[in-house]
């Protein structure tokens, strides 16, 4: 593994089993996150994006089960280790969740407790991982709120989530995720519930934070325009598999996989058009998913059946 890789997923499979059937939510995927970069995962709903992120923090709950694979994490100034080998109650896993790695969710209202003040919740996140006096935790939390653009933070600390707007709550989530200086920040659809003006503010905040602190970001979204604005690397997922990997320009300007091409064509444009080009479920399921081969050209990867692989790609 090269030193520029902070996290490397190898042959990861995750299945969900019920009385009737077993479903492979993640089907033998491989991916690398580059250190200090933003890696975006895009793909249709149910393709396994969130489940992949949960696996990175060992948060898969029964009936979900990781059936194979490893997730090698290489934090700065520490030895690499396989996250999936950590025991449920091990101190290392405790350090990982909310410490070395933290996550912000799509719906900030459900992720915050309605009955505790904003201040208490951020302080708890700090005190779980750092043995410092309460007053120091308060100061740190207030400073972090200012850092994410919430003014009058000392008064704001005493307020409850319902007193914050959607955009403010998402800022609180970002503050809470950053207080322990994680090396990886996972953002699962962080702007999906926000209007575009506030989305633009949150994206600007994330970019500005990235420019000042060394952090690697995994950004999950289904909004390709957001990907265009925030990502360095893009991973396209469909039905538990990775179909294509490349730089943001490669994927958005020159997608190889027909599914990626379809995804881009389905974006409603500024022009009014009578119908959107929806991707038919059958075409993705039957044509591309059955026996794909991995083809590589430089730093691009695409999974396609033999006849569809472009000539300049190597198997």
């Amino acid at each position: 593994m090269s030193t520029s890789t902070i996290l490397s997923i190898r042959n990861l499979s995750i299945s969900f089993k019920n009385e009737i059937s077993e479903q492979l939510a993640v089907n033998n995927i491989n991916l690398d996150m580059k250190r200090s970069q933003t890696t975006a995962i895009v793909g249709e709903s149910g393709s396994g994006k969130s489940v992949t992120a949960y696996a990175m923090m060992q948060l898969i709950q029964p009936p979900g089960k990781i059936t194979s694979g490893e997730i090698i994490f290489s934090p700065a100034q520490q030895d690499s280790f396989d996250i999936l080998q950590l025991n449920d109650n091990s101190p290392a896993l405790y350090d990982l969740r909310g410490g070395l790695m933290s996550m912000i969710f799509q719906e900030p209202m459900t992720a915050l407790s309605p009955v505790h003040t904003i201040g208490n919740q951020i302080m708890e996140a700090i005190l779980t991982h750092q043995a410092i006096p309460k007053q120091a935790a308060f100061d740190l939390a207030a400073a972090m709120l200012e850092r994410v653009g919430i003014q009058n933070s000392r008064e704001r600390m005493h307020q409850y989530p319902f007193e914050f707007s959607g955009g403010m709550r998402q800022r609180v989530m970002i503050a809470m995720a950053l207080v322990c200086q994680p090396q990886i920040l996972i953002c699962d659809e962080p702007t999906t519930a926000l209007d575009v003006t506030i989305q633009a503010e949150i994206l600007a905040l994330l970019k500005e934070l990235k420019a000042t602190i060394d952090i690697s970001v995994l950004f999950i979204t289904h909004d390709l325009a957001v990907v265009a604005q925030i990502a360095d690397q893009v991973i396209v997922m469909n039905q538990g598999r990775i179909l294509e990997t490349g730089s943001v320009r490669q994927i958005l300007n020159d997608p190889i996989h027909p599914y990626s091409q379809g995804l881009i064509a389905a974006v409603p444009g500024m022009k009014r058009q009578p119908r959107l080009d929806a991707i038919s479920n059958d075409s993705t399921r039957h044509n591309y998913g059955v026996h794909p081969l991995i083809a590589i050209k430089g730093d691009r990867e695409v999974a396609l059946p033999m006849p569809l692989i472009p000539a300049e790609y190597q198997l």
Partner: peptide
């Protein structure tokens, strides 16, 4: 109310076409 906000673009397109 934000009925297609959580959907990826391809499903969003299907649902919008369906609603139409």
């Amino acid at each position: 109310d934000e009925a297609v906000s959580a959907l990826d673009v391809s499903v969003q397109a299907q649902v919008l076409n369906l609603l139409a």
